[in-house]
């Protein structure tokens, strides 16, 4: 008998017994199909409330947050870079909506495209959404927003559209099911709450570990 069937046999012997008529399998599949949400702790009734809470929570997780209209995104990025004395070069994926937002007539930014090899100082990504409850961004892998951009550059700028801010994680799972199909996922989904950190030396919290030292979120209105 293979290790697999031995382990499964042992489990069946201890819990539920053999599932010959697939009774347990059917009830388990129903649970997965229904995927009940459980308890959602914060009561958020309006979009404005969700945005306000998102900003508060993201800031308390040490992210910086700015809000602006679609016409001012490039300026916002440029001002963040200036503030931290960073070069005006940024890495992005192929997300054309994001590129349209950050390109400007005045050529404020120099953009390069593709995944990061570790030599980029700043990356810009577009989030699939944000969960207000904890100020958490959700980013998905793909050529539009490669996963390496979320981790290798020291500065990560994330564009988040107001309409994509939802109260809870569960709202984002709905969105992912709608986009990719039920039970399907992109290779990587990153839930990001603030810049990277470590408290491994004497339990003292230090920002900037292996991931970005700074996380800057630009919330785009409208």
């Amino acid at each position: 008998m293979s290790t697999r069937s031995e382990i499964l046999k042992k489990i069946r012997g201890a819990v539920g017994g053999p599932d010959e008529k697939n009774v347990r399998r059917v009830s388990v599949e129903q649970h997965i199909k229904r995927h009940p949400a459980g308890t959602l702790p914060s009561k958020i009734s309006s979009k404005a409330g969700a945005i306000k809470l998102f900003i508060k929570r993201a800031k308390s997780a040490d992210a910086t947050v700015e809000q602006c209209g679609t016409a001012n995104v490039a300026e916002q990025v440029a001002s963040f870079l200036r503030e931290h004395n960073l070069p005006a070069t940024c890495r992005t994926g192929t997300d054309y909506k994001l590129k349209r937002l950050v390109s400007s007539k005045a050529n404020l930014l120099e953009l390069s495209e593709g995944p990061s090899d570790g030599n980029d100082i700043t990356a810009i990504s577009c989030a699939l959404g944000g969960a207000a409850e904890t100020g958490t961004l959700i980013l998905v892998s793909g050529p539009e927003n490669p996963t390496t951009l979320n981790f290798l550059p020291e500065n990560h700028i994330v564009i988040l559209h107001e309409k994509d801010i939802v109260p809870h994680q569960e709202d984002l799972w709905k969105k992912i099911r709608k986009k990719y199909g039920s039970g399907e996922m992109p290779r990587t989904v990153n839930m990001i709450t603030g810049p990277s950190r470590s408290a491994d030396i004497e339990q003292t919290l230090i920002l900037g570990a292996h991931g970005p030292l700074r996380l800057h979120i630009i919330i785009v209105k409208g």
Binding site: P143, P146, M185, T188, M191
Partner: peptide
């Protein structure tokens, strides 16, 4: 664990990189 509301990174990995992925 650490008293955070969420840890900084919760990363979900499903299978190897997809045909059009540029990393992973």
């Amino acid at each position: 664990a650490t008293g955070q509301e969420m840890s900084v990174y919760t990363t979900l990995s499903s299978g190897p990189k997809r045909p059009d992925d540029v990393d992973g």
